[in-house]
């Protein structure tokens, strides 16, 4: 039996993600409706795929009449960045068997990765129940807001007026600030920022993120 306190802590830690997913999910629901997706189709996509930027792109492609192979290929490349996040969490997941890793992997996103890795960095050791509770809070927020956005498209007030579109950037800033405690980490972060920005206009897709992570972590490794 997982402890109730662990589950509650996981839900509570997921709140920043909930705030950030709300405007994104509503916007996705609206876009999906304009592309002709039924509420059931939106619900199914958010539950099965659960990948924000890939879902936005898939719907845009469906709208343009793209087929199975191009959409699947594009989804693969957009989500390839999670390869690095999965690798980065792995040293902390050695105690879990394949079944438990399966559930953690399905709900691995940029945002849940950011919170989990920050917890490990802070010396915390969240239980499996806490991690799954956090991940499920995020996925529930995403799924419900995409579904609601699709059903009530246009009837809801624009959540960007509430500043909620800044929730995820603020979360990333907050989590990053917690890591810049020593020179090595700061140098790694600085290189990652530079490569991300320079690569954005030079590299296709989000290869700027992948290159930034690979190179900047390499700098950390080589530094003494």
């Amino acid at each position: 039996m997982p402890a109730v306190a662990d589950i509650l802590r996981g839900v509570k830690r997921g709140v920043p993600i909930v705030l950030g997913y709300l405007p994104l999910g509503l916007a996705f629901g609206l876009l999906a409706r304009e592309a002709g997706l039924t509420p059931g189709a939106v619900l199914g996509m958010s539950l099965l795929v659960f990948a924000g930027s890939a879902q936005f792109m898939a719907v845009a492609m469906l709208r343009q009449g793209a087929g199975f192979i191009p959409i699947t290929t594009a989804t693969f490349f957009i989500n390839l960045r999670h390869l690095l996040m999965s690798a980065a969490l792995s040293p902390h997941l050695r105690r879990y068997g394949p079944g438990r890793l399966l559930a953690l992997a399905h709900q691995l996103t940029d945002e849940s990765f950011a919170l989990h890795s920050a917890a490990y960095q802070a010396g915390l050791d969240p239980s499996y129940a806490e991690m799954v509770a956090l991940n499920s809070t995020a996925q529930a927020a995403w799924t419900l807001s995409t579904f609601t956005g699709n059903l009530l498209a246009g009837l809801l007030p624009n959540p960007t007026a509430l500043g909620l579109d800044f929730a995820l950037p603020a979360m990333f800033i907050g989590l990053l600030a917690g890591r810049l405690t020593e020179a090595g980490e700061s140098a790694v972060a600085a290189l990652a920022v530079v490569v991300t920005l320079v690569g954005a206009s030079v590299l296709p897709g989000n290869w700027n993120l992948i290159s930034a992570a690979l190179l900047a972590a390499g700098l950390g490794m080589l530094r003494r």
Binding site: S117, A118, F172, L176, G184, V188, A189, L209, A217
Partner: peptide, 13 residues
């Protein structure tokens, strides 16, 4: 070092 690198990249992006 990967978490710091990824987090900085996500923040910048």
């Amino acid at each position: 070092f990967l978490p710091t690198a990824i987090l900085a990249a996500l923040a910048a992006q």
